[in-house]
Design a binder for these strands. Sequence first.
DNA 1: CTTAATTCGGACAAATTTGTCCTATTAATT
DNA 2: AATTAATAGGACAAATTTGTCCGAATTAAG
Lengths: 144, 144
Amino acid sequence: MFSKACEYGIRATTYIAMQSLKNRRVSLKEIAEEIDSPAAFTAKILQILSKNNIVDSIKGAYGGFEITSTQIHTLKLSEIVNAIDGDTIYAGCGLGLKECNADKPCPVHDKFVDIRNDLKQMLENTNLYEMTTGLEVGLTYLKR
Amino acid sequence: MFSKACEYGIRATTYIAMQSLKNRRVSLKEIAEEIDSPAAFTAKILQILSKNNIVDSIKGAYGGFEITSTQIHTLKLSEIVNAIDGDTIYAGCGLGLKECNADKPCPVHDKFVDIRNDLKQMLENTNLYEMTTGLEVGLTYLKR
DNA sequence: CTTAATTCGGACAAATTTGTCCTATTAATT
DNA sequence: AATTAATAGGACAAATTTGTCCGAATTAAG
């Protein structure tokens, strides 16, 4: 569904958000350990997220990554996905046609529209804060 | 959502089905032209589909691909997808965790379960015949 | 029997995604 | 100012997916 990069990106962002809520800035090393992802690859993804103003990065000693409280409450899952994978998951044709729309649809166009709209709604209705709530109390997990 | 191989596979199967309904056996060359896909790559995918008894292949001169009328009416889209991409689209965790279930869920597990169930239902409730009906009359398309 | 048309299957090639490594840059501490 | 801990970014490497090529096998027709 999502690329590996996107999966790591969502998990990393969620972990950073959880720690930011406790006013803890976290390092790449810690993030990679806590979400069980390859560190150098995760660094690349965090660069993308940083450039898209999804996470804040602070260079130098005692630097790391953090997310403002405002962002945690307003950022939607869709924005993270979009920054990394783009909008193919919403926009693209299920059968890979370049031009597929209500006017010239592929044989499963209508059925895919429904599914993708549901997915889109879900991603747009899910915010970061919501994703952190279960983590702290051990109801949800970011690795294994 | 699906791999390129799967997209070509679905389009190829749908085209073969439409022609089989008119008792026309079709060659790889024709299929690739009509669904606008790379021929040699499509051949590999048709081999997979043939081994999974989704299409029938006939070797030699005047050979080609066809699908029995019974199969056209009973084959579900899910079976085509499963033969090529496996069940990751149903089974896998949205965030890439190996163990993600109701007991130890990722932060978006419940929301993904709903989406994936809808997708699964859709793929299982769509049969090949249904996918061919619009094609013949120019209501739906398999290329561009 | 020969020829032509076709799928099958293996090896290879290109493109993309995933992942690593190293140096440069930045900033806090001493 | 020097040291140290961290991110940034470029180059490279590995793995996977996508795509190509060619000879072998098969089968119908002449």
